[in-house]
Write a protein that binds this DNA or RNA. Sequence first.
DNA 1: GCCTTATTTAGACATCACTCTAATTAGAGT
DNA 2: ACTCTAATTAGAGTGATGTCTAAATAAGGC
Lengths: 89, 89
Amino acid sequence: MGINAVFEALSHPVRREILQLLRGGPMSAGALAEHFTLSKPTLSVHFAKLKEAELVAVKRQGTSLIYHLNMSILEEALSGLMSLRETKS
Amino acid sequence: MGINAVFEALSHPVRREILQLLRGGPMSAGALAEHFTLSKPTLSVHFAKLKEAELVAVKRQGTSLIYHLNMSILEEALSGLMSLRETKS
DNA sequence: GCCTTATTTAGACATCACTCTAATTAGAGT
DNA sequence: ACTCTAATTAGAGTGATGTCTAAATAAGGC
């Protein structure tokens, strides 16, 4: 949990692309899956990791699950990275 | 190579802590290793991944290898993350 | 050249990550 | 209740990652 899961989630290119796609707005699991050649179960695992890291949140709409970005965690990762920058001496 | 290796390298807590330690300035492999309970060979593998991602660079000084941060790649990762932020609509 | 110090490379092993197909759950409509 | 669509969970295979101990490489000093 925490920042660890966030960096872990960001380490896979497919998951970063999922986030990229969600930048434009919320999307269903199926709509997201269409952008990849991977099987839906495989994508589902990637969704789960992004969700575990709280980089995305999900809401059910009828039979569809709609994923959307969780900005605050992205900002957190961002500031985590920024804190790695050298201390200007 | 590229941004992929960078996020991959950042995904392990030990490697992020190595970067954290290097914020204060260059350090030898041995000096870095003292901050961890892991064996030196294990740390050496972590150094190699950071080096492969070009997050750090290394310079020999006598028998010691001195590691230091490579700012430009960190900035690159930072901007990569920033690009994942939602498009302000 | 040999010894010491510093660090990496090699080899082995265990665990974890990614992917697939098949089966299951969940909701909506008839 | 049955069926259709949407998505996840289960199980299995393969390959990558992280860790160790032991051996090898590199530089410096005697």
